[in-house]
Write a protein that binds this DNA or RNA. Structure first.
Lengths: 357, 357
DNA sequence: TTGTATGCGTTATCAG
DNA sequence: CTGATAACGCATACAA
């Protein structure tokens, strides 16, 4: 018995660098079977309070930590979550990653970054993902709005979470924010401030959020009884450069708007730049609002009034959904859940009442 | 025989969702032993060319992918790399993560994010890290400059990589960029443009890079035979807000500088904002340069001339170093390597020749 | 409530 | 160069 233990010990140490404590050692020290230790660790309810406390104590003393590799090998469940991204807007990706990684750590899941072009062949992509042994996929915009991709992924049995999508797909989990409501709220704020001519800089038409935000803008206008005007709705694509052009167009109008609402912060920042370039003041001459509350919103001057989109939180929830789906097995994967998070208006210094003409 | 196979098959399928191909199946199909398949997969040289080709073919046909959990359990080597961060500058973290995650995927390593305050107790932190079973730690600035932390980490046998540090520690891997050289090069560029009064906005004095960048600035001035002037060196802390104050001070000088070199992009962006606020033009009235080439550099107008610090590449190298160290075992961990990456000057629109007085 | 047997997919070790 | 065997650390299934 003793000899067996000793030889086992030396073998292990020979193989591995750090001597790690195992269930057996804990079990031995606590005077119970390895199985009981496993139950305690996994919170199995059918363990007497007494043994549980004793085992917990030994675990603390010995500093036992479960070996994730052994765990996933034995249980057969692993957790490799792919994060597909195509448009690496640094701040968005960063916040997304922070949320996803935090939650992944809790589930011992691995996040695997996978960059891919938006136009990539869905079938080829799926093959590539399988090669990485992914069980689930996190889809931030704009990929989450690609129906073919989502369908292909769900088709091969992967759990997929669409984050901030405007096109929820059958069988996929979704975590969304009410983009339309947020856009309406921001527009209403501008109206309450006294603005009547509010310009809108739209986002990439290929992303569902663009349409949602535009609709929210229009709805608020309608509710306030303000007539819409086509010239006040310019088409951007979420890029800074497009914001520049759109703002120029807006300010070139015979009767320029007193406020500009851009569908994201980058374009709003561009609008601020153009406005400054023309010798106008923000917000005195023109109020400017953004959307997303990314880093740029607080970096430029004046700081942008914007809509806060809790990206990290959304990524966290999506990851949790996926981890749960994988753990639950195929049957639970069917019952894809749709979560939604709340937006909030962040009032800063880029908007104010319109100037008296 | 057949029955045995069949029962094993059904059991496996019962446990796991996706039927994954195993070494045994590949071995069977190729008419060799599982061990040989393992050798082929791991590139063991002592396998005949013929068998290797045959096995490789079967692997492709069956779509075999090694199970990482089983692999690390059997080999005893795992790869859990912690990424400690305290100052979540979104863009830096994002780029860092992209690099680290990309390399981690290649080594089947897991990146575990761990936020911690800069003043945290090193001992407590180390305990926390052990609880996560980390084998190695990635240390971006400013944490990489905390000698106590690094020492504590190395002390408990963890492989640690200091990224962009100014204080390389004994036993730790380092991946650096020549901050001083880069700052000197940027300053020299400004001098070549014709500037003689160049203001400098320094970074957080607690981060080693700040001193390095300041030294580079001074060196270039000295080499050009331009007298240094204390009033032209202002103290920032890498934050946008500090850049605002420093730039105000610089422009309030009796004889303001014709160019301002900020130790990072955020402060440079702030300088641009202040300059605009005063009705001055960039770069006509004042040239402004940044450092790091973060997202903000290309988002504001005019786009910033800056130093590109290849953060993703540095994170990638650091991760590779760590993965190698873990795989190599304790002995190799001693031979910590110091890598360095090249910087580059990115000329954009925020600088130009000084205005003729 | 607790313990026993067994296997997860892979690799280390040693024998051929 | 190749194969048989025995772990790796844990969890499932079933027995007590």
């Amino acid at each position: 018995m003793i000899e067996g233990d000793a030889s086992g010990e030396s073998r292990r140490t020979a193989r591995r660098g750090g001597a790690s404590v195992t269930v057996s050692q804990v079990a031995h020290a606590a005077g119970v079977s390895p199985m009981t230790v496993s139950r305690v660790v996994n919170g199995d309810p059918r363990v007497s309070q007494a043994t549980r406390e004793k085992v917990d104590e030994v675990i603390r003393d010995l500093g036992y930590v479960p070996n994730p590799a052994a765990r996933s090998l034995a249980s057969g469940r692993q957790c490799r979550i792919g994060l597909l991204y195509s448009n690496p807007s640094a701040s968005y990706l960063s916040e997304f990653l922070v949320g996803a990684l935090a939650e992944a750590a809790r589930h011992d899941a691995q996040i695997i970054l996978e960059q891919c072009e938006a136009e990539a062949d869905a079938a080829a992509l799926v093959g590539q993902l399988r090669r990485h042994r992914l069980d689930a996929v996190l889809l931030p915009p704009p990929l989450c709005d690609d129906p073919q991709l989502v369908e292909a992924l769900v088709g091969v049995g992967m759990a997929v979470a669409q984050v901030a999508t405007g096109r929820p797909a059958e069988g996929a989990h979704t975590v969304c924010m009410d983009d339309e409501g947020a856009a309406a709220a921001m527009t209403a704020r501008l109206i309450a401030l006294g603005h009547r001519r509010i310009g809108f800089i739209g986002g990439d038409p290929r992303q569902a959020s663009s349409q949602l935000r535009l609709t929210g803008y229009r709805r608020a206008l309608a509710e306030a009884g303000i007539a819409m005007e086509a010239a006040l709705e310019t088409a951007g694509d979420y890029s800074y450069r497009s914001g520049l052009a759109s703002c120029e167009a807006l300010l070139d109008l015979a009767v320029p708007p007193t406020a500009i609402f851009a569908a994201n912060d980058d374009m709003a920042a561009a609008a601020v730049a153009v406005t400054h370039r023309r010798g106008l003041d923000v917000p005195r001459d023109v109020s400017i609002c953004g959307f997303d509350d990314t880093a740029i919103a607080t970096t430029i001057w004046p700081e942008l009034t914007t809509v806060r989109q809790p990206v990290a939180e959304m990524a966290r929830m999506a990851t949790q959904l996926l981890a749960g789906a994988i753990a639950g097995g195929a049957e639970e994967r069917q019952a894809a859940s749709d979560e939604s998070v709340a937006f909030s208006l962040i009032a800063r210094d880029s908007d104010g009442p319109p100037q008296r003409a």
